[in-house]
Simulated assay, not measured.
Amino acid sequence: MTELVATTPGLYPLPDWAKDELSDLKGHQKGDLISGDEGGEIVDAYQRARTEVVDAQVDARLDRIVEGQLRWDDMLAHPLTVHDNVETGGIVRYYDNNNFYRDPQVQGELTASGDVAAELESVDADADELQAVLPGPYSLADLATDEFYGDEAGFLDAIADFLVGEIEQFPAHETLFLLEPSLVENEPADDANEHASEVIDRVAAATDANVVVHTYWGAVPERTYAHLMDADVDAIGFDFVTDADESLYNINEYGTKDAIAMGLVDGQNTLVESPETIRDRVDWVLENTHTDFDLAYLTSNTELFYLPVNKFEAKLGALGDAATLAEVDA
């Protein structure tokens, strides 16, 4: 039997009240926001919003609870954009969505900041339910501009070391999702695939939690996927919304881990999938792969930031309900 675990890759939409309140507060404290040193009123507003999205996950009966990453205005680049040695440059567009973010320009040594750890510490959830979320090292390096290390391989190593330092400050957690869409969108050069896998492995080794490398915006190219399989992680995540056939091909051609993260819910489309539809998609994956999975994470393919709050909450509920329907034969 395959154990089904309902979860998400995080990066949630701000509650509507928080958008208005924080917009007004940030307008008066722009200088503090670049360094991540928000004033007390901003910290309080984020904490109230954080409590709201944690409660929404509990109400939806998700098996893993994320912090929500509501402060991550620059999405996956956030851990760098709040760093003292990073200058936030102009507005850029990441990947294939219609949102725009600041360009993190690394101008000094990347030492651990503890910023993400502090967010996790504030989540009211037991350790066996808590799921941490970070950009994977390859994607974070891909989204940043190096003005200090001077070498692509050295910069990727520095990013990995930075993430290891962040993880080492985390409270106890059950699962870590490393989000790696750049493996799809901007695959490593042939001679860099092995290094990309090595740094993912290094970051994963920094925690005792189960580590999921979640990929999306399509299927990972074959050569990159084959190298990714060398990383000692517990599961790889697949975007079955954008490219189900190629994702299935990678699994059957190159194998995968004993656990899998299935991106079955569309993180950008407001159409809410029913629990039955999600379970049909689970069945399709299980019936068409050659792997007997011990565990399957049921999740959205991408972050849920792009959705209206009511649709976001409805999709949480659908994932929770899908995981609690009758058990599936592996």
Rank of each mutant, 00 (worst) to 15 (best):
A144R: 10
N193C: 15
E194S: 13
D16A: 11
G68D: 04
Y138N: 04
G108P: 02
H214S: 09
V199C: 04
I251K: 08
D63G: 10
T2K: 01
D24F: 14
T224I: 06
D321K: 15
E185P: 00
E119H: 14
Y254D: 02
L179V: 14
N301F: 00
G108S: 05
F240K: 07
P137A: 09
F170E: 04
A235M: 04
A192W: 01
G218I: 08
Q47W: 07
G90L: 08
Q57C: 04
F100Q: 13
D124S: 09
I159R: 00
G27I: 06
L179F: 06
R223Y: 12
I65V: 14
E3A: 09
D55C: 01
A219G: 03
E303T: 11
F293A: 04
A158L: 03
L143M: 14
D239L: 04
L176E: 07
A235W: 02
E21M: 00
S35V: 11
T242P: 02
H214M: 02
R93W: 05
V164F: 07
A235L: 03
D266I: 07
R61T: 13
I34Q: 01
D103A: 01
P221F: 10
K311H: 12
I42T: 08
T7H: 01
V53Y: 08
R61K: 15
L130A: 04
T299Q: 02
G39M: 03
T224V: 14
N97W: 12
G40D: 14
A6P: 06
S139Y: 03
L271D: 13
D63I: 00
G90Y: 10
S35A: 13
Y254Q: 07
Y297K: 08
S274N: 12
L178W: 09
T291D: 00
L14H: 03
V54Y: 05
M229S: 12
T302W: 08
D20S: 12
K315M: 00
K257G: 07
D190V: 10
L14P: 00
R93M: 07
T302G: 03
L264I: 05
L33D: 05
T242F: 02
N250K: 06
F155Q: 03
T88S: 12
G89Q: 06
E152M: 01
H214K: 08
F148H: 15
L70C: 00
D20Q: 12
D208I: 10
K26Q: 15
D63A: 04
E287L: 02
F240G: 00
V116I: 15
